[in-house]
Nucleic acid binder design. Structure first.
Lengths: 182, 182
DNA sequence: TTGAAACCTGGCCGATCGGTCAGGGAAGCT
DNA sequence: AGCTTCCCTGACCGATCGGCCAGGTTTCAA
C-alpha cells in the first residue's frame, strides 16, 4: 500500500505550498486563483476542484498554525494566571518560529476578516491568546499584548533575512519586555 | 475673496476624507474607486478627474501623516543618539495619536508597497525612524523598534473603542518598555 | 477487459476592476 | 451676450476577477 494517496494529496499539498508563498509575497487579496494555479503547475479549475473557493485555500494554508494555536489555548486554559502567561509566551514564540511563513499572512486579512467565516476560529483563539499573554484584566496590559502579537505578525516577514534563532530571540525578548510579569 | 476655492477644494477634501475611512475599514486593495466615489457623493470619473489614479488617492490620504513623519526625521537627524531616541519616542507618539486614522492604512499596503512609487518616501522615513527609536546599531534593538512600529500601526484600529488619551498611553508605554534606553 | 470513480482541464460566465473620453452645465471674465 | 475655463458625468473600454460546467484522461477495482 502506498504511504499517501498519490495524486490527490500531492496536488493538494503543492497548491497549499505555493499559495502560502504567494500570500506571503503579495498578500491574500492581491493573489488570484490563477496565480496559485500557475505556480502549482495546474489549472485554475483544478484549484477549485480541490478547494471550494478561494477562502478555503486560505483556510488550508492557515490550518496547521491554527491547530497549534488552538492546542496552545487548550493547554493554558484553566491554569493559574502567572503559569499560563509564562507558558503562553514560550509556546507562542515556538509557534511564531515554526509557522513563520504563515503568521504574517493573517495581517493582510485583518480588515476583511469578518467576510471569511472559514477562519473565524483563528481570530477567537488570537483574542484569547491576548488575554493569557496579558496576565491580568487590565486594559492597558491587554492592549500591549495585542500590540505585541500584531508586531510579531509583521516581523516574521523577509524570510531570508533572519535565521530561526534570531526570530526566536526577537519574539521572546519583545514579549518579555512588553508584558508586565504577573 | 473667498476663503477657499469653493468647488475644487471642497470636492477634493471630501474624496480624501471618505477614502480615508474606507481604507481604514476595508483596506486599500479591497476599496474600489467606485466605493470612494459613492461615499463622497460623486462619480468615479470625478475621483479620477481630481487624482491621477488610485495610488494618487492613497498618497493624498497619507500626505499629512507623511509630512509630519518627514518633519520628525528632520528634527532628530544629527542629534546625539540618546536625545534623538527620546524625542523620536515623544513625537512618534504624538504622530500616532494625531493621525490615528491614517497610520493603520499603511499596514494593508506593505506587501505591495514597491508597486506604489507615490509613497516611497514614507517607507524610507519609516525605516529611518526605526533606527532613531532603536538608539543603537544593534540588530535586535532595531528589530524591536520595527516591531513596535508595526504593532502600533495595527493598534490604531477600532477608532471608537479607545480614546486619544488611552492611545497615547499605549503608544508611550509600548515604546518605553520595548526599547532599551541609550 | 470493462466500467465506475477520481482527477484534471479549456472554455465560458457575469461582475467588477482601474481608467479614458467626449461632452454637458455652471461660473466668471470681457 | 458671448466665450473660455473649470467641474463634473454617463457611457464605455480591455483586463481580470472568482467561479462553474461539460467532458476528457487517468486510475483502479471487479
Amino acid at each position: 500500500m502506498a504511504v499517501t494517496t498519490p495524486a490527490r494529496e500531492r496536488t493538494r499539498h503543492e497548491i497549499v505550498r505555493q499559495a502560502m508563498g504567494l500570500f506571503q509575497a503579495k498578500g491574500y487579496n492581491a493573489t488570484s486563483l490563477q496565480d496559485i494555479a500557475t505556480a502549482a503547475g495546474c489549472s485554475k479549475a483544478t484549484v477549485l476542484y480541490h478547494f471550494h473557493g478561494k477562502p478555503a485555500v486560505l483556510a488550508a494554508v492557515l490550518e496547521p498554525a491554527a491547530a497549534d494555536l488552538a492546542a496552545l489555548i487548550r493547554t493554558v486554559d484553566g491554569l493559574p494566571r502567572a503559569v499560563a502567561q509564562e507558558i503562553a509566551i514560550q509556546q507562542f514564540t515556538d509557534l511564531s518560529v515554526k509557522h513563520r511563513g504563515v503568521v504574517q499572512v493573517v495581517q493582510d486579512i485583518l480588515p476583511v476578516i469578518d467576510e471569511i467565516p472559514e477562519i473565524s476560529g483563528l481570530i477567537t483563539d488570537g483574542m484569547q491568546l491576548s488575554g493569557f499573554l496579558a496576565g491580568s484584566d487590565d486594559k492597558l496590559e491587554r492592549d500591549l499584548a495585542t500590540l505585541g502579537i500584531n508586531g510579531l505578525l509583521g516581523e516574521c516577514r523577509h524570510p531570508g533575512e533572519r535565521t530561526d534563532e534570531e526570530l526566536r530571540t526577537l519574539c521572546d525578548t519583545a514579549l518579555r519586555r512588553l508584558l508586565k510579569r504577573a
